[in-house]
């Protein structure tokens, strides 16, 4: 059976390309033992969960869906890191369309790059990618339509949530201009105005994995 991982990557202005949350399926409850505060992250690339934990777990039948900032598997971690770096630092893509990328060294992914408005970010926007990663190329290709639909729906929701929460347009232009210089890491929770956004991403990723595995 193919291994699928759904991951939200971010180009952090401090730490560069990194993973914020990755969801995978496992037969055992194999979670990260590190507290979130011990990871060298900033607000913008941190998986912010209650009680400083670093894992979200959902048991469905005999399987565990585990979301954490990084996957526990070292090989997958290495693949994921390289893929996020390539997607957010190397690739050029029409950000409204999915992009497939894969090789037999780093794995295969269907992803969509998207941007979220934030006046405190460089260029006034933050760059993310939502990706489905697998070790089997043909499984990614076979589920192209379903996967890309999920990516589109989740990204559309995030962007609309941020737009609703965006109060920057209410201030005058001078304020906006001055705030631009204050580059400040911001979590997706703050941008969306939704404390449960990572839980929602976790549950969405579960549905995606269930429908393509």
């Amino acid at each position: 059976m193919a291994n699928f991982t759904v991951c939200l990557g971010h180009f952090c202005e401090v730490h560069g390309p990194c993973s914020i949350i990755s969801t995978q399926i496992s037969k055992t409850k194999n979670i990260l033992k590190t507290k979130a505060s011990n990871l060298q992250t900033c607000q913008s690339c941190q998986l912010s969960l209650p009680n400083d934990v670093n894992n979200i777990v959902t048991k469905s039948k005999n399987e565990f869906f585990i979301s954490s900032q990084y996957p526990s598997n070292q090989d997958l971690y290495r693949s994921l890191t390289k893929l996020i770096m390539k997607i957010l630092s190397v690739e050029t893509s029409d950000i409204s369309k999915p992009l497939f990328l894969g090789d037999n060294a780093n794995g295969f992914t269907l992803t969509r790059i998207f941007k979220i408005k934030d006046l405190n970010a460089r260029g006034g926007e933050r760059k993310y990618c939502l990706m489905i990663v697998s070790d089997e190329e043909h499984k990614i290709m076979k589920n192209w339509r379903v996967s890309s639909n999920y990516l589109n729906e989740i990204i559309d929701f995030l962007q609309s949530k941020v737009n609703k929460n965006d109060n920057s347009s209410k201030g005058n232009n001078n304020d906006n201009y001055l705030r631009r210089s204050l580059v400040k890491p911001k979590s997706l929770i703050e941008l969306c105005g939704d404390k449960q956004i990572f839980i929602k991403l976790h549950l969405s990723a579960i549905e995606l994995i269930k429908d393509i595995k």
Partner: peptide
């Protein structure tokens, strides 16, 4: 996705290292 994203309440149990949903 609409149902998940518009959900207001989640049944959460948390322990030291993880939250179970």
């Amino acid at each position: 996705i609409s149902t998940i994203m518009n959900q207001e309440y989640f049944n959460i149990e948390d322990d030291e290292l993880s939250i179970d949903i």
